[in-house]
Design a protein around this nucleic acid. Sequence first.
DNA 1: CATCCAATGATATAAAATATCATTTGTCCA
DNA 2: TGGACAAATGATATTTTATATCATTGGATG
Lengths: 167, 167
Amino acid sequence: MTKKRTTKPKDVRATLADHIDSAITACRMRGAQMTPLRVAVLSALWSADRPLGAYEMRDLVSKSIGRKIAAASVYRALDFLCAQGAAARIESRNAYVACKHPSHEHACVFLVCESCGDAKEIENPKVEQLIDADAKRLGFTVKHRVVELSGFCAPCQKGAALTAHGA
Amino acid sequence: MTKKRTTKPKDVRATLADHIDSAITACRMRGAQMTPLRVAVLSALWSADRPLGAYEMRDLVSKSIGRKIAAASVYRALDFLCAQGAAARIESRNAYVACKHPSHEHACVFLVCESCGDAKEIENPKVEQLIDADAKRLGFTVKHRVVELSGFCAPCQKGAALTAHGA
DNA sequence: CATCCAATGATATAAAATATCATTTGTCCA
DNA sequence: TGGACAAATGATATTTTATATCATTGGATG
């Protein structure tokens, strides 16, 4: 067996393995099969820790597994991972990220920085409740929620301020 | 001058003219110029009253003005109209609609039906406040908000139920 | 072992969006 | 008035994103 992991938050490699492991377990419990390709795609997402386009992912995964993958295969893997709640699509960027809270169903809320391109996933059950209430009032049955804010993250604002001063 | 309009809600033609008129006025007040092409695109959106793709719009507008328009021109007009708050993009569908509440800034919330493809725009200031509060707490400056629910609208649910019973 | 089904490979194509540069139109001011 | 400048559009090509199709592979199961 593998030696006990300490799971310090900063130890990216250890937590990557943890994330993959729990995704595999979660899929198994649902009778869904987590294949090597799907693992490779999910690993790419966790490793990048930023939104990746499908074609960018194709290149990364192709390198990581040592052979050329077709875009269609990446899209298929992404469809699967999104359906399983292990990944999510950021509609306003045509990009994908690993879901940071895959253990339970929820509406992901993304804060997407226009400067660095990073996307932070947060959760806010109240937002979900509010919009669902609106929908219910109108007789609309909600299947999927997209909540994305674009703007500038804290680090980029500081950076911009420094740049402005320095100029 | 044109004869006085009654602006009955059901009179689509009259309200279309009203919408275009007020968009022109709003643009003028901001020093933005509402050109014939932009009017044609906005008219197409109001007339269709459902989300239109850019290429679909190209065809509609080409017919309405009697000459072939390039896709790029449509995209430019749409960029302008979205910036002016006269139209909005539905990210999860790669489609555009006329904004139903162009008179004031707000985060559009869209309920997009997976069955009929229609998109209803609603407004909920509380949703806006909630997610903005989250953003603020994280030092994130919000520039744009995307809130889209996909699912099934009331009419389509009834239709589906009838179909199921009838079968 | 044979069979079946899900997943993937391989390829082609569709759909959506942008880039570039020439041309026209409009605005403003001398 | 007309000349100069900026904004908008035309025209074309290309990039990026996504899907369709059918052959092949690889397990699971009986």
